[in-house]
């Protein structure tokens, strides 16, 4: 894959290469964070100095369906030893699907000094770079976070409904079978309790993984524009909402549209199909 800087991204600074990470392993201003779906991966071997942020126990409220609040984020940030000035480098499994999810949650707390390691864990490992089971000794910090701001990059059900009524842009990043209503869940994933299949009216279907190459790196800006702008006609300056099943796959698309293509107003609807497909009276298309 070509150098990140040559791929034409609007905000190429949101991606770093494995080489860059290797050169910053001992940089006090950088914290490397692994975030995976598989809980065994980090403990079995991670980039030296990397800490783990787990999408279940670290990012979500343990009771309500919501993300952690200000106090929880401050506690998490302090535990992983970052300050608001620290550059947080996320990487993980599945083409950085879970890494972009973690980054999106960090940005809800205005920690925008966060980047993704292109290619994720797989690329690092396949390049033969060092992985260690040694957990780093982290000096905890006192991190003062703002209240979580859900207004800019997060969408809620009522807002999505208004968005559809004004013919706003929607990207459904699930599989075609989920989009059509043939399946209520991703291929290989279980039925999670949605009582209706289909998609939000007006949505276009672009499975999230189309933005990634086989090796987990992101496609070039030209390739991404061909998908999102030429193929389904998204306008980069019009408000756009991405959704999937519970908002994790769509965080990957949110990252692509916002940072790699420079769309100006993209929100991730984390309620996604498990909320929409269960809500009484909401319109559905098949």
């Amino acid at each position: 894959m070509s150098d990140i800087s040559s791929r034409g991204y609007k905000n190429a600074a949101k991606l770093v290469s494995t080489e860059w990470v290797a050169a910053h392993l001992n940089d006090d201003n950088v914290r490397i964070v692994e975030s995976n779906e598989d809980p065994l991966l980090y403990p079995s071997g991670h980039i030296p100095g990397a800490v783990e942020v787990d999408w279940v126990k670290d990012l979500n409220d343990p009771l309500r369906r919501d993300y952690l609040g200000k106090a929880g984020f401050e506690s998490l940030a302090g535990r992983i030893g970052i300050t608001p000035e620290t550059t947080v480098v996320f990487y993980g499994d599945k083409s950085n699907w879970w890494a972009t999810y973690a980054l999106w949650v960090f940005e809800l707390f205005d920690h925008t000094n966060a980047v993704i390691m292109d290619g994720g864990r797989l690329k690092w490992a396949e390049e033969g770079r060092e992985l260690t089971r040694e957990r780093p000794s982290i000096r905890a910090t006192n991190y003062t976070a703002p209240e979580r701001d859900d207004s800019q990059i997060r969408a809620f059900r009522d807002g999505v409904l208004q968005h559809t009524q004004s013919d706003g842009q929607l990207v459904d990043v699930r599989s075609p079978a989920e989009f059509s209503g043939e399946k209520l869940h991703m291929e290989g994933y279980p039925q999670e309790g949605a009582v209706r299949g289909g998609h939000i009216p007006g949505a276009d279907n672009v499975p999230w993984s189309r933005a990634a190459n086989e090796d987990g790196t992101f496609k070039t800006a030209d390739e991404l524009r061909a998908i999102y702008q030429e193929e389904i006609g998204l306008d980069p300056v019009a408000p756009t909402i991405a959704y999937c099943r519970i908002g994790e796959r769509s965080s990957h698309t949110w990252f692509v549209l916002t940072n790699l293509l420079g769309f100006s107003d993209v929100r991730n609807y984390d309620g996604s199909w498990t909320e929409w497909g269960n809500s009484v009276g909401l319109p559905i298309e098949r």
Binding site: E37, P39, M186, G188, Y189, P190
Partner: peptide, 13 residues
């Protein structure tokens, strides 16, 4: 073996 907080996809597989 894996606990209840494993992801839906992982649990299914």
């Amino acid at each position: 073996f894996f606990g209840r907080d494993i992801s839906m996809g992982k649990g299914r597989g």
